[in-house]
Amino acid sequence: MIQSSSPGTVCAGERTGRTCGDAMKCQQCDNPAVFHITELEAGNVREVHLCEEHARVYLNQSEGGDGGDPGEPGAVEGKGQKGGGLSGPLGVGQTAEDLAVLDKRCCDMCGITFFEFRNQGRLGCPHDYLQFEKELDPLIANIHGATEHTGRRPSRPVPEGVDAGSGTDGLTAIIGLRRGMKEAISREDYESAKESRDAIRGIEDAWTPPAKAGEENA
């Protein structure tokens, strides 16, 4: 199922003139663009903006391995680049079968499928970076020419007993628990729902920032 991204989630706009002007249009027609696809070719990142109809055509072409070039009226830096389909994000040499399997994989926390990410160019939650690590690695290497963060880090330590190597992923687990709780409630399994709720509270308490804890004690 192809999903459209909601308006207001276009990071490509930063490179294509988002400050002023009309809402982004499809590159093939005058309809509003609801698909924002990140393409990689020869180390270049290119954003493709399409309406629903043209996105279907485009994605079908891409999956056929041929890669249509929808043209590039918007981006200053996109001129002259030829479409390479969606091979970029997936690494070279991926077969259609690999792709089909990969597309069905989904995040344990937010539930986004890899296919949805490919279509929107937007991830669903922080855990996706771990869930799709192997697939994102070449994509990120292509975009940034690097795969290791060397900049600033949060100064606050992770809670006791939490593996610092996983960053804030322990807190992100709440997203999955919240989903589980909702599902439990909808099937009237209140016991599981309560367990999820308690687990969420436990994690929240452990991760409560000291600044806020201080206020609450005061």
């Binding site: 989630t9 937007r122 970076y129 771990l130 940034h144 900049g151 606050r156 960053g167 804030t168 992100t172």
Partner: peptide
């Protein structure tokens, strides 16, 4: 500004990827 806000919230962060963002084009710093 960033440091002050960080005292009060848990920003999504991973030691290897840095600050985690909705679009991989912004990840890291």
């Amino acid at each position: 500004v960033d440091d002050q806000i960080e005292r009060a919230v848990s920003y999504a962060f991973h030691p290897r990827w840095g600050y985690l963002t909705a679009c991989p084009t912004n990840v890291g710093t």
